[in-house]
Deep mutational scan, measured.
Amino acid sequence: NPITQSQFVPLGEVLCCAISDMNTAQIVVTQESLLERLMKHYPGIAIPSEDILYTTLGTLIKERKIYHTGEGYFIVTP
Rank of each mutant, 00 (worst) to 15 (best):
N1Q: 03
N1C: 10
N1A: 03
P2H: 15
P2I: 15
P2R: 15
I3C: 06
I3S: 14
I3M: 13
I3K: 15
T4D: 06
T4W: 08
T4E: 06
T4Y: 13
T4N: 15
T4A: 09
Q5K: 14
Q5M: 14
Q5A: 14
Q5G: 08
Q5T: 15
S6L: 08
S6A: 13
S6N: 15
S6K: 10
Q7H: 08
F8P: 15
F8I: 10
F8R: 10
F8C: 13
F8W: 09
F8M: 14
F8H: 11
V9H: 15
V9G: 11
V9F: 09
V9K: 14
V9E: 12
V9N: 07
P10Y: 09
L11H: 02
L11P: 02
L11E: 02
G12D: 13
G12A: 15
G12K: 09
E13Q: 10
E13T: 07
E13V: 05
V14Y: 06
V14I: 15
V14D: 01
V14Q: 15
L15C: 09
L15F: 06
L15Q: 03
L15S: 01
C16E: 06
C16V: 07
C16D: 00
C16G: 02
C17L: 14
C17W: 11
C17P: 01
C17I: 07
C17M: 15
A18Q: 03
A18T: 10
A18S: 05
I19V: 05
I19S: 01
I19H: 00
I19L: 01
S20F: 02
S20C: 03
D21F: 05
D21S: 07
D21V: 03
M22F: 00
M22H: 01
M22L: 05
N23G: 02
N23Y: 02
N23R: 02
N23I: 01
T24F: 05
T24K: 10
T24D: 13
T24P: 00
A25F: 07
A25K: 15
A25R: 13
A25P: 00
A25S: 13
Q26W: 01
Q26K: 13
Q26Y: 02
Q26F: 03
I27K: 07
I27G: 02
V28H: 13
V28T: 15
V28L: 13
V29Y: 02
V29S: 03
V29N: 01
T30N: 12
T30A: 00
T30S: 07
T30H: 01
Q31W: 05
Q31S: 10
Q31V: 14
Q31M: 10
E32C: 05
E32T: 07
E32N: 10
S33E: 02
S33H: 02
S33F: 00
S33Q: 02
S33Y: 02
L34D: 01
L34K: 01
L34Y: 01
L34V: 03
L34R: 01
L34S: 00
L35K: 14
L35R: 13
L35P: 02
L35V: 11
L35T: 10
E36F: 06
E36P: 03
E36V: 06
R37D: 04
R37I: 04
R37V: 06
R37N: 07
R37C: 04
R37S: 06
R37A: 08
L38W: 01
L38Y: 02
L38G: 01
M39E: 12
M39N: 11
M39V: 12
K40I: 05
K40V: 11
K40F: 09
H41C: 11
H41I: 06
H41G: 07
Y42T: 08
Y42C: 07
P43S: 11
P43H: 12
P43Y: 08
G44Y: 06
G44H: 07
G44I: 04
I45M: 14
I45P: 03
A46H: 07
A46K: 05
A46N: 08
A46T: 09
A46F: 07
I47N: 03
I47A: 07
I47Y: 05
P48W: 07
P48F: 05
P48H: 07
P48V: 03
S49Q: 05
S49M: 04
S49P: 06
S49W: 06
S49Y: 04
S49I: 04
S49L: 03
E50I: 14
E50G: 13
D51K: 10
D51N: 09
D51M: 09
D51I: 03
I52R: 09
I52K: 08
L53G: 00
L53Q: 02
Y54Q: 11
Y54G: 14
Y54A: 15
Y54M: 08
Y54R: 15
Y54D: 13
Y54L: 14
T55A: 11
T55D: 14
T55C: 11
T55S: 13
T56F: 05
T56I: 06
L57F: 02
L57I: 06
L57P: 00
G58Y: 06
G58L: 11
G58H: 09
G58Q: 14
G58P: 02
T59Q: 12
T59C: 10
T59P: 01
T59I: 13
T59K: 13
T59N: 07
T59M: 11
T59D: 07
T59H: 11
T59A: 15
L60G: 00
L60E: 02
I61S: 05
I61F: 02
I61H: 02
I61Y: 01
K62G: 07
K62R: 10
E63G: 04
E63T: 08
E63W: 04
E63R: 07
R64V: 03
R64P: 01
K65Q: 06
K65V: 06
K65A: 03
K65P: 01
I66P: 00
I66Y: 01
I66L: 06
Y67A: 08
Y67N: 05
Y67P: 00
Y67L: 07
Y67F: 06
H68Y: 08
T69D: 14
T69I: 02
G70D: 11
G70W: 04
G70A: 10
E71F: 07
G72N: 04
G72W: 00
G72D: 07
G72M: 02
G72K: 05
G72Q: 10
G72T: 03
Y73V: 02
Y73F: 04
F74P: 01
F74S: 10
F74M: 15
I75E: 04
I75W: 06
I75C: 14
I75L: 14
V76C: 12
V76H: 12
V76D: 09
T77K: 12
T77I: 05
T77V: 07
T77P: 13
T77A: 08
P78N: 14
P78V: 13
P78H: 03
